[in-house]
Design a protein around this nucleic acid. Structure first.
Length: 463
RNA sequence: GGCCCCAUCGUCUAGUGGCCUAGGACACCACCCUCUCAAGGUGGAGGCACGGGUUCGAAUCCCGUUGGGGCUGCCA
């Protein structure tokens, strides 16, 4: 191993920071620290249709929260297109790639007709199409032979080339595809060890092919980390599972506990120690000790680790850390709250809904609102629907609520707000609703609205 | 379908041919401590997926089976 390895974390800005990405970042960071290496942050935002610049800030803040500082970057792939274009020229020149004008539908049709496996069949490989805009570029994968690479955790896998189709390297709109930008950047940034999730193992032969075609010389060393799965054994997904590290932060987990727990997923110091100070992790971390079988994310264990960190604090630290957290929860609402209170004691009732798992419903106000508003349930129903698809900011929620009011036949926004406010905060008064909901989050808002709905249906007020 | 990978208590793991009657942690159960609850202590239940080899000896090595996962996108 060279003396000063260079590693990178290369997330794509998708709107949240996946715990799996966090674990990958941690292992990269640990490896770099252990060996006096350099940890590079690179944002893989080549898909302009999908990525948003503001999400880059989210990635950085999660990384900072975890304490995983980077030495270089962030480098944005969206700002490095010249590099990829140059690489494309090299590939074109060497005739390692060719233009293709097949639509996804064409490819699918042909696959179905020949009854074979899905995927690209090399239709344009020998058509010598000109590489004009509007045509994607594919790599001419050798039809026979095999290709392998060094992998510190999985041994040295070898892949038969025949199973690898002619994969795309550039989109028809001229944007580079992930695999191309990934390889070019790793070479440009002199990455020596590619430490990433196991979901990339199958991409690595393509990586190696491109690397070679571009004449980059010796391949980096790889380390494909076992995936982190949910309780069903499937890869953690945003839809089904809680996967965003910012969610754990918001729920009161400590960064150091999170890091400690994540380190234990796929790695262990080789004995029975589980609560490990960062320094010990750094001095003992070894990619060779990383397991190759996937792990299941167990929040109960995380909570247990967290509680151990909590108990170890001095009372002063405990107060300090709790206050920081308590404060961060309602801070964004502060300007709105201060206009509505006469004493500090009143602050509590204004923000309490943010801290409770479920709101405490003010019975009197609830009954009153129900009596006054014949469309109470209709509003809730409509709101649950429109809010589910709303952009989660003040404007988005505002229009969703208006739309809900229209649907429920309620004339003005104020009347359609009451049922929602009562269901979500339990009270009829409080800080402005949109801002409150933004802070509470979509999931909790929706589940509280549904609970409110159930409440109306269970006990309708008669008079 | 094709290619690749994985397989120790429910979960995270220790184990790299004899130290294994398989160790620890979370969760679970019981008891102790105790003004409640935690914490702590003690004990308990619970695992090498299966079948063949190799070997004096296999959780550990090999093969097969089964099960699971990943990839197979003009996403990353």
């Amino acid at each position: 191993m060279q003396s000063h390895p260079r590693v990178r974390i290369a997330p794509s800005p998708t709107g949240y920071f996946h715990v799996g990405t966090g674990r990958t970042a941690l292992f990269n960071w640990l490896f770099a620290r252990r060996h006096g290496g350099t940890f590079v942050l690179r944002i893989e935002d080549t898909d302009t249709a999908r990525n948003r610049p503001e999400h880059v800030e989210g990635i950085m803040s999660s990384l900072r929260w975890l304490g995983l500082g980077w030495d270089e970057g962030p480098f944005l792939q969206s700002e490095r297109s010249a590099l990829y274009e140059r690489a494309i020229d090299v590939l074109l020149e060497a005739e390692a790639v060719y233009a293709c004008d097949c639509s996804p539908a064409d490819i699918q049709d042909r696959a179905r007709k020949r009854g074979g496996p899905p995927g690209y069949d090399g239709f344009c490989r020998d058509r010598s199409l000109e590489a004009t805009s509007g045509r994607m570029l594919r790599f001419k994968t050798p039809r026979e032979g095999s290709i392998g690479f060094t992998d510190l955790v999985r041994g040295n896998p070898t892949f038969p080339l025949a199973a690898i189709e002619d994969f795309g390297v550039r989109k028809s709109n001229g944007e580079p595809l992930f695999i191309l930008a990934n390889v070019v950047d790793d070479a440009d940034m002199s990455i020596s060890h590619v430490i990433r999730g196991d979901d990339h193992t199958s991409n690595t032969p393509k990586y190696a092919l491109l690397w070679e075609a571009l004449g980059y010389g010796e391949l980096p060393v790889f380390a494909h980390l076992p995936l982190i799965n949910n309780a069903q054994g499937k890869k953690l997904s945003k839809r089904r599972d809680k996967v965003a590290v910012e969610d754990f932060r918001d729920e009161g987990y400590l960064a150091e506990a999170m890091v400690n727990y994540l380190a234990l997923l796929g790695w262990s110091p080789g004995d029975d120690r589980e609560i490990l100070p960062l320094e010990e992790m750094i001095s003992e971390f070894d990619l060779g000790d990383v397991k190759s079988s996937p792990a299941i994310f167990d929040e109960r264990k995380l909570a247990s680790v967290n509680s151990q960190y909590l108990r170890k604090m001095t009372p002063e630290e405990m107060v300090e850390r709790s206050e920081l957290w308590l404060r961060s929860r309602w801070e964004p609402l502060a300007p709105l709250v201060q206009e509505r209170v006469r004493t500090l004691a009143e602050v509590y009732s204004m923000v309490e809904f943010l801290y409770r798992p479920e709101p405490v419903i003010d019975q009197t106000e609830w009954a009153k609102a129900l009596r006054k508003n014949a469309n109470f349930a209709l509003v809730l129903e409509a709101a649950a629907e429109t809010l589910a698809g709303a952009e989660w900011d003040v404007d988005g929620i505002h229009s969703a609520l208006s739309a809900a009011g229209d649907k429920a036949g309620v004339a003005n926004l104020r009347d359609s707000q009451a049922p929602v406010r009562l269901s979500v905060t339990g009270r009829s008064v409080g800080p402005p609703l949109m801002e409150s909901l933004v802070l509470l989050g979509r999931d909790k808002t929706l589940s509280r609205i549904r609970a409110g709905l159930a409440r109306v249906q269970d006990a309708p007020v008669t008079g």
